[in-house]
């Protein structure tokens, strides 16, 4: 399926990616080609096939609900671009 500019911009917003006009144009072409590749999947009928999300049809293991982690807030916060008083700082959201 060929994508149009509007769809590309909508997807970019969903993906939280800023794209300029030149890039939008490029994505229209490139993503349409990739979707063309993806559509080759329709050559095989899969109507009665059970979807396979994981190899070996694994299911996620559960563990006892116990505290196993130690407090590493300090070391984690050292990695952040902006922190203050133990809080992560982002631009103002509510006026």
């Amino acid at each position: 399926m060929a994508l149009d500019q509007e769809t590309v911009l909508r997807i970019a917003t969903l993906a939280r990616l800023y794209i300029d006009e030149a890039q939008t144009q490029r994505f229209v072409t490139e993503l349409s080609r990739i979707l063309e590749l993806a559509e080759q999947m329709n050559e095989i009928d899969t109507d009665d096939v059970e979807p396979m999300a994981h190899p070996l049809d694994q299911t996620l293991r559960l563990r006892p609900d116990r505290v196993t982690e130690s407090d590493q807030r300090e070391s984690f916060q050292q990695l952040a671009p902006k922190v203050e008083d133990g809080l992560y700082l982002v631009p103002k959201v509510i006026e």
Partner: peptide, 27 residues
Amino acid sequence: RRIMIGTYALSAGYYDAYYLKALKLRR
């Protein structure tokens, strides 16, 4: 590019045609 393709394939209206189809093919 891959984030865009993935976001599209999982977005409303396209999930069955792309993602679910691919999971069946994977089987």
